[in-house]
Design a protein around this nucleic acid. Structure first.
Lengths: 337, 337
DNA sequence: TTGAAAGCGCTAACAC
DNA sequence: GTGTTAGCGCTTTCAA
């Protein structure tokens, strides 16, 4: 490996002059600048960042831990974070925890050991476990998509998202609802549910227990939609707490010959790309992932400056995206009730 | 930040003893070991990897550049690479080039500047541009999914994949084929096409130009399937060079009321998860991404040891996955011809 | 404008 | 088994 000394020798100057040239911290005369640049090109010199950061005490690197990069929801956030970090001359070290708490801890330790300047994290596990982690860490951490109370977080407003879905369905005249829920111990899912059910109840309707089916956040859970339809008074509208589940339900409905939205309306959550391949395409609640990512890195930079680990949670508002899978209650369906 | 000196002072030993304890390079007596560990815990000491790698001349870090982590095809490869690297005690720095050649170069420079020990790369752009890049680089690079001639690469065998698709369709009695192709200047797509068309021709049938539609690797391209069906002698089987395109075609067919596979058979490529949500589910050519990822890091480790940049290309065999979207030519369809 | 020298946190010889 | 010392590649005073 060629070093700054090699370059200096070749250009006939001192290492510190090369350093000055590279960092722009002090002016170097045009002729020497030229000689230095030539030496760099000839030698193919690439500065050693490890050595540099050992001196300057920062790495211009951010850590980012996500549960699963192959999840399109997360990968869109990742893309934005990458993008805005890069514009600020920061590199991001992206790590996939695989939803495994132990691995997550070890990744965090690794990041800290690399001396990243700050950390962005979509955590896995219980939110309360993270306040100690965040306060102990030698670098600021801001949480994304899943809030940690008392620590700077930026998430979307799931409660409002749930309300939005309910309001849309209620506006279409629906009064009997079914719910297909992902892991209900996940905070975000809980909040969507609370928002949805709360809004429905405010309008004087209720959602009885057998109308709520919960499972994993998979296509499989969606397929259990038939259970809902077999009820004595089947729902005319179904809320799935995420699009994957909605897609599973949609497929099952297609197999069963149940028409969407004529026989039953279906609404998802997240607005992943695949919601647009179904026929009809899926009405859903969209989360502004790009905005969430952007705000998250802004918050992190602020935390890095102020050295403040604690902080508020920022809520990014969700929005209703009406497509073809929801419609007014049909006379027939209404007659059944 | 607490350093190894702080720990040493607290434990009443020399820094080198702490180092010995940490690395296990030399034995330390149980009592001192205990005192050192206590000091570490009390101080919350985390070793500085930058400083360490400055000494030891390696970082135990691998670089990985992919065009788009949100693409489920790539993200599965990434997951495997992460996984096997981790077991070998290596950290991977994952970078998303966004399919942008300029950004790709800058990421590579960055990785080199970080002094990663080796680089894995799914490149964007023309393969020939990469041989210089790989030979100039101070660290070994192995290419994944997209081969670079003369440089160590591990890819799946797209030519055979195309053949497999054709053979399956031919075996079902099809003789008139349509093709929906992604960017045909991408090597992998070209090879799939060559394999498919070659096999068809070997059986004495031809695929005329109007039967081949090419565009981007998007749902949109798939939707142009109606052009194929409007031909004077429409195909009874359609090969899409990837699953996204196939999904687009499937949706369009559904809208048009064309039955799959009764009226037309449809086969995709890649075996992404979404091929299983359609009705019927999609017959496709599966690539063993996990195996590709595994072999790639193995190849990289070998290259890191031998310091050999040049090398062969390893081909991972694809396999046919028969599901519901392909079937025998119907009498009706056959009668039309 | 340029150079000499010290030191970031760590490890590896080597001496004790 | 443990301590001393030098030095990895870089930046940053401070002098010249």
């Amino acid at each position: 490996m060629t070093t700054i000394k090699d370059v200096a020798r070749r250009a006939g100057v001192a290492p510190s002059t090369v350093s000055n040239y590279l960092t722009g911290n002090a002016r170097v005369s045009p002729p020497t600048a030229k000689r230095i640049q030539e030496a760099i090109d000839e030698l193919g010199y690439i500065p050693n960042r490890a050595a540099r950061s050992l001196r300057v005490k920062h790495t211009n690197t951010l850590g980012l831990i996500v549960p699963d990069i192959s999840n399109p929801f997360f990968s869109e956030i990742v893309r934005t974070i990458n993008h805005v970090s890069q514009r600020m001359e920061y590199t991001v070290m992206l790590c996939d925890s695989g939803g495994d708490g132990t691995r997550e801890k070890s990744l965090l330790a690794n990041l800290l050991s690399q001396r990243v300047d700050g950390i962005l994290m979509i955590h896995t596990g219980h939110r309360d476990d993270y306040v100690e982690l965040a306060t102990q860490a030698s670098r600021p951490i801001v949480f994304v998509d899943r809030a940690v109370e008392g620590i700077r977080s930026v998430v979307t407003d799931n409660y409002t998202g749930g309300k939005l879905a309910a309001r849309h369905l209620l506006g279409l005249g629906h009064t009997r609802f079914g719910i297909l829920a992902g892991n209900t111990h996940v905070r975000n899912v809980q909040e969507r549910l609370e928002g949805f059910i709360g809004e429905v109840e405010e309008h004087g309707y209720a959602i009885e227990p057998p109308c709520i089916i919960s499972g994993e956040q998979t296509l499989e859970t969606g397929r259990e939609v038939d259970l809902l339809l077999k009820l004595r008074r089947p729902p005319t509208a179904i809320f799935a707490t995420n699009d994957i589940i909605a897609l599973g339900a949609w497929r099952k409905l297609l197999e069963m010959g149940v028409r969407v939205p004529e026989d039953v309306s279906l609404i998802g959550y997240d607005n992943i790309e695949m919601t647009q391949i179904t026929v009809p395409d899926l009405t859903t609640i969209g989360q502004d992932k790009a905005e969430m990512g952007r705000q998250a890195v802004l918050a992190l930079f602020e935390a890095m400056e102020t050295k403040q680990v604690t902080g508020e949670t920022t809520y990014i508002p969700p929005r209703l995206i009406v497509r073809g899978s929801t419609g007014p209650v049909e006379e027939t369906a209404a007659a059944q009730g």
